[in-house]
Simulated assay, not measured.
Amino acid sequence: MPTLILSMSLFALAASLSPGPVNLVALHSGLHFGLRRALRHVTGATLGFTLLLVLIGSGMEGLSAIVPRLTELLRWVGMGYLLWMAWGLSRSDGPGHERAAPLPPSFWRGALMQWLNPKAWIASAAGVSVYTADGGAALTVLFIVLFFVICYASLASWALLGARLGRRVMEQRRLQWLNRLMAAGLVIAALSITLI
């Protein structure tokens, strides 16, 4: 059992900590609004992902068989949403100098991002099929609890990194470059959705 818990934890860590759109928004939120306010996004994204994991763990993956176009629709809607966020981020020049002010962190936007994020769907489906298929409800609950804790800690670390960078990079020119770099990351994430 300890080996299984370690394996589940490493899977959750790799899926949660690796750069992706939700993590970039956590970084951006910490950078522009500080850690406390960024935790709204972190909490929403973690709970949104956990709800997705619970539903997939309880058999919702059969929905894709019923609605074959669900994955394709999710891919295009998610890509559009990421591109819209990248556009807004690329236009942000920093506190007090925005052409387009960055959206403040939101619980609901964080949760919505997970539901529009194909990476979250794939990680949920893969994790459930690998770790809980033969283990029953107790193993599913264990996987969900581990993933919740690791996901929250991972996203919070991105927000903390943003808050720390925000204290050091308050010069407008540096913020512009950092915002554009994060926007480019979101564009790459959006375009990579087409490869899934």
Rank of each mutant, 00 (worst) to 15 (best):
M113Q: 03
S58A: 06
M85W: 05
E72L: 04
G96I: 10
W87A: 10
G62R: 09
L178F: 15
G30K: 07
L53A: 02
M113H: 10
R99I: 13
G48W: 01
I193Q: 05
I193A: 12
P102T: 09
E98M: 08
E171Y: 11
R174A: 11
A159E: 13
I188C: 15
F11C: 09
M170D: 14
W87I: 13
S129E: 02
S64H: 07
L39R: 05
L146G: 12
M8R: 07
L178K: 10
L178V: 11
I56W: 00
V145P: 08
V141Y: 01
W115Y: 05
H41Q: 14
T132S: 13
G136W: 04
G88T: 03
R164D: 10
E61N: 06
N179V: 09
A12L: 03
S90H: 08
A111E: 00
L51T: 06
T140L: 13
H28I: 13
A163V: 02
A137S: 02
L165H: 14
L55E: 01
G96R: 03
A15I: 08
H32M: 06
A45G: 14
L35Q: 13
F33D: 05
A153Y: 05
L83V: 14
W177P: 05
L35F: 13
S192C: 12
S9T: 15
T140Q: 14
F148Q: 03
G88W: 00
L142S: 06
R168E: 14
G48Y: 01
L24G: 09
G166R: 09
S106D: 07
G20E: 07
S64I: 13
T43G: 03
A101R: 06
L55K: 01
A126W: 03
P2R: 11
A156I: 08
N117W: 05
S29M: 10
D134W: 10
L4P: 05
Q172K: 14
L112K: 02
L103M: 06
L13A: 15
L10A: 09
G185K: 04
R168T: 07
P102M: 07
W177E: 10
W177L: 14
G88Y: 02
